[in-house]
């Protein structure tokens, strides 16, 4: 009895529940399985097609991704002779770990933080910056011309979006006078997207670039360089490399919701009184809807070329990010927040 109750207490403690159950590992897997199906269905609807259908037909092929995932598990994982084995095998695992780690800094509800630190916003963004490095390791370790090209593209893209992402996020920190997600949510009487729309737009575009989703899937570049840095991967390692972008994007949508869409407010009080983490349900719903919107953009936009994306990053987004900083300072001086 004592063991069971202490286990339950462990599972329900913020330190465990946040990263492992919600919004972490378990929820990430559920989001991964659902969002890829949603993405394919939406793209199919817009493009006069039907999309996945035959696996569980009454629900329109909803468990297609489960079938694909199972296939990844049982497929042979081929390690080519010419690869550099240590980075080749380690990089996808490290990348996935670092895509999962930021969830430890996502607060779910008032006084429900997995990891209590006053700098959760920079910690969240900082952990995400490790992923491009692991992608470079994959590219280098694969020892393949397509992988190298993809790696170089990743390096170019990283310097184009990372500064922009950070500056636009820090402009919100200036506005709210805090670097903590939870305090940012409390500071938002009006949603941040209305206070500083420039920062929201820039962060939105930069986070799509960062996750490498269409229209910025330049690193993968399926039409030109097979799968970029992930070309040599097969089986479950390919599944991991495919999932990284989605996990990253899901994390970023949570951060976007916390910074610009007033997070879990208005708090669902009855659920919050049952268990604090359930108060985060609105945060999740907002983030998921945002995710659906982003995957919908895939059906609308064509891919940008590398040089076009870099131009957007440096010539448009970077100045806009600087402008958003000044806007935040101006709003702060006036005393809006």
């Amino acid at each position: 009895m004592g063991l069971v109750s202490s286990l339950v207490r462990l599972v329900l403690s913020p330190q465990f529940f946040g990263p492992i159950v919600f919004p972490g590992l378990v929820t990430v897997l559920a989001v991964l399985l659902s969002i890829i199906w949603v993405e394919r269905k939406i793209a199919a609807r817009v493009q006069m097609r039907v999309g996945p259908l035959y696996i569980l037909r009454p629900l329109g092929g909803a468990i297609q991704m489960l079938a694909d995932g199972l296939r990844f598990f049982f497929q042979e994982f081929i390690v080519p002779e010419t690869v550099d084995r240590v980075p080749f095998l380690l990089a996808p695992v490290v990348a996935m770990s670092f895509a999962m780690l930021p969830f430890a800094f996502v607060p779910l509800a008032p006084n429900f933080k997995p990891y209590t630190v006053p700098y959760s916003m920079p910690a969240f963004l900082g952990l995400n910056t490790v992923i491009p490095l692991t992608v470079l390791a994959m590219a280098w370790g694969s020892n393949n011309k397509f992988s190298i090209q993809g790696g170089i593209r990743e390096a170019y893209m990283t310097i184009a979006y990372e500064a922009v992402l950070f500056i636009s996020a820090y402009s919100m920190a200036l506005l709210y006078h805090t670097l903590d997600f939870a305090e940012m949510v409390e500071a938002q009487k009006v949603p941040g997207i209305l206070l500083n729309p420039i920062s929201a737009l820039v962060f939105f575009i930069a986070m799509i670039m960062s996750a490498g989703k269409l229209p910025f899937d330049i690193v993968e570049g399926e039409q030109e360089i097979v799968a970029g840095p992930f070309t040599e991967y097969s089986g479950i390692a390919f599944g991991l490399t495919m999932g990284i972008g989605y996990v990253q994007l899901y994390g970023f949508t949570l951060a976007f919701t916390l910074m610009y869409l007033s997070g879990w407010e208005p708090l669902v009080a009855p659920l919050y009184s049952i268990y604090p983490a359930l108060g985060g349900i609105l945060l999740f719903v907002k983030a998921y809807l945002l995710l659906v919107f982003i995957v919908f953009l895939r059906a609308v936009y064509g891919r940008y070329r590398l040089d076009q994306a870099l131009r957007i990053g440096w010539r448009t987004l970077f100045p806009l990010a600087i402008v958003s900083v000044f806007l935040s300072i101006a709003l702060g001086v006036i005393g809006v927040v």
Partner: peptide, 9 residues
């Protein structure tokens, strides 16, 4: 088209 798909399949 998302709301009112124009499917040809």
């Amino acid at each position: 088209y998302l709301v009112k798909p124009n499917r040809i399949t």
